[in-house]
Amino acid sequence: MKTTQPIYHLKRKAKALSRAEDIPLHQALDRIARDEGYGRWSLLAAKASETTPASELFAHLRPGDLLLVGARPGHGKTLMGLKLAVEAMKSGHPGVFFSLEYTRENVDDRFRAIGVDRSQFDHLFEFDGSDAISADHMTARLVSAPRGTLVVVDYLQLLDQKRENPELSAQVGILKVFARQRGIIMVFIAQIDRSFEMAQKPLPDIGDIRLPNPLDLQLFDKTCFLNNGKMVFGAAA
């Protein structure tokens, strides 16, 4: 059964419904799913995941890789990061989600949005929403992480928002060395500049990354860009 609209549009409708009627997001998602002919959102999401590119993208990642995932707000970049963590956990590897924006409750909502029962991964999934998130904080938390751990950083442009933190380029450099040494995959969620919306391009590219502070984008090994339900994956160089 096909949905009447792309799934990212349905998620937007659910968020708007949640705000308009002051109900939890998971209830709004279930109502949207019923309108689409599914008993609950998890069933709709599971059906959509059969054709999701997350598993295909994960297959291209190698221990030590730094992946940059970019999209404008509402186009699924954070969900893609979470889906990649789920793919890693399905393979028996830990998934760690660092966020300077989301709460644990927000992440639980996102698990429900992609039709995943987080409890099945309780022994593999870690969430860190500390205000102290930086390269030093993350390397300290990950010092015992086994090879193959997939780490999501949400999001790139917030890492140096505190003046006491090193500049962004230095932090990504530290994390690159750490990931290579430990065999960890690091997925950085990145904002896309608003100018992309005026460029009349189907998908953003590395030149559209919003950079309020200097950053050598060649530090990343691979990129993934999302827009209107489409995705492009490639090397960063």
Rank of each mutant, 00 (worst) to 15 (best):
G148N: 12
S49E: 10
G74Q: 08
E56M: 14
V172I: 08
A71V: 01
K15M: 15
A54V: 09
G173P: 00
F225Y: 11
A135E: 05
K201T: 14
S49R: 15
G115R: 02
S18M: 08
G207L: 08
V172D: 03
G92F: 06
A85M: 13
P24G: 04
L84Y: 01
K162P: 02
G76V: 02
R40M: 12
H60F: 06
Q5W: 02
D154P: 06
L203H: 06
I206T: 11
T3G: 12
K201S: 05
K83Y: 05
G183D: 02
M186W: 00
G183E: 01
L43D: 14
V96A: 03
A46E: 12
T4M: 04
A170T: 14
E101P: 01
M231Y: 14
L211I: 03
G207I: 08
Q5D: 03
G70H: 01
M80D: 03
V96W: 11
S55P: 10
L66E: 02
L10I: 00
T223D: 00
E21G: 11
F196M: 05
I206L: 06
Q5I: 02
K13S: 11
A88D: 00
L68R: 02
D30V: 11
G74F: 00
A45L: 04
D30C: 12
L100N: 03
G95Y: 04
K11Q: 14
A88T: 08
Q157L: 02
Q120W: 12
G64L: 04
R110Y: 14
V116L: 12
V116K: 09
R141C: 12
L68C: 02
G129Y: 07
P212F: 09
F225N: 09
A20L: 15
R40D: 13
W41N: 01
Y38S: 07
H60P: 03
G148Q: 11
V151K: 01
A54F: 13
K11L: 13
Q157C: 09
A190L: 08
A16W: 10
E197A: 13
